[in-house]
Design a protein around this nucleic acid. Structure first.
Lengths: 215, 215
DNA sequence: AATTGTGAATTGATTCACAGCT
DNA sequence: AGCTGTGAATCAATTCACAATT
């Protein structure tokens, strides 16, 4: 993943730690499925792909609730991380831009079991390939009303580069606080708004760099 | 973006710099479109969302070819970065796992203009929702033959968590050197194989953390 | 006069090493 | 005995400050 555009700003816990907490949470879920009740920092670090010390440092930000000589209680730790991340509540998300990638993301239903739901999609022009999208595609003009009414605070942005900044300005106006940006430009937003960038082309480019024999 | 599972290992240039070079390249492309011939570190840094010093430090890894008092030649700099990243040649990529997300990625044609092409998709079971995928979905058993024949070195992995490690082992066996991993587990691969992780749920979770008022 | 290139300083993240619990 | 929690040490990345160049 690309780094966020913003420094941590928030509070004490470093951004990279927050990322890793999400990873730990997913690992713990799998341990739960396998009826593990307790896990050592060594074992959990192994499946999470980090060093045991790093795991312990990360968890230390949440307080201390491991048992020395024994490890961590899987359920308790899950609960604690999930509470810190605020993963309990279901978050409504709007998707802006129903082109190629937008349609792809819309048809991907994998967010739901992770606590997010794409409640609606918007585009400047609702007519186009309206074919089999799982959700209704609304006109951009309905966005402000929708956002207000449904208390939407997060948006997935998948519009073409040329439109991205303009649409972002609107989103910010309407009160969106977090943007998952798939467009290939760096968005200019106020301090208070958070942007995470995902750029699949860059990920592939990066892989290709490390794979290929230096010229 | 999530960090890669691997440290730089490769050569001198730090991984984060490589990422940023990709970003600079895209910014330069836009400058080119606007007929800019020359650009200062300050201006380029601005659109790339970094500090001018960082930009200069990053570019210094490629040698020095800015002109003091003037800035960088847009075309020359593009060429140089693109050469370093190896973006010239078109890379064939296979996609493994044609479930929800896999199908979404398949229908997204945005890679091509960036130098990558999903040449084929594979699944354990080629029958299922074969509906309107842009490309043929082949049976996993044809994968080794295909990879060998078409000199494929990179794969996009979008299989369910339960199958991910098993499939990865196969990919590694068949000679795949780089994996863009959309599955939510940390893959275990040999040193020589590179994995980049993309996890949309984690990106959203992360946004939501920074947005929401601390409890 | 403007702007790059870069050593030195700073800031941040990771890892070590071990003291402290259970 | 085993494993967590953490201050100190190390390592890496960023930023500063300014000399060098056009």
């Amino acid at each position: 993943m690309l780094d966020s555009q913003k420094k941590t700003e928030r509070n004490d816990i470093p951004r990279k730690t927050i990322y890793r907490l999400s990873v730990y949470l997913r690992c713990l879920a799998r341990l739960k499925d396998n009826q593990m009740e307790t896990v050592s920092s060594e074992a959990l670090a192994k499946v999470a792909g980090v060093k045991p010390t790093q795991l312990r440092k990360d968890l230390a930000y949440l307080g201390h609730f491991g048992t020395r000589g024994l490890g961590y209680d899987v359920l308790e730790l899950s609960r604690k991380i999930s509470e810190e991340l605020g993963t309990s509540r279901l978050q409504p998300v709007v998707l802006i831009g129903v082109g190629n990638l937008g349609r792809a993301l819309l048809s991907y239903r994998g967010f739901e079991k992770e606590g997010f739901e794409i409640v609606a999609a918007f585009d400047v022009d609702e007519s186009p390939p309206q074919k089999q999208t799982a959700r209704p595609v609304l006109d951009m003009r309905e966005l402000p009303e929708y956002v207000r009414k449904h208390h939407v605070r997060m948006a997935i942005l998948s519009v073409p580069a040329a439109a991205a900044q303009e649409v972002t300005n609107q989103l910010v106006d309407y009160g969106i606080m977090g943007i998952l940006n798939f467009s290939p430009i760096v968005l200019d937003v106020p301090e208070s708004v958070m942007v995470n960038n995902v750029n699949l082309a860059i990920e592939l480019e990066n892989l290709s760099y490390f794979i290929h024999p230096r010229h």
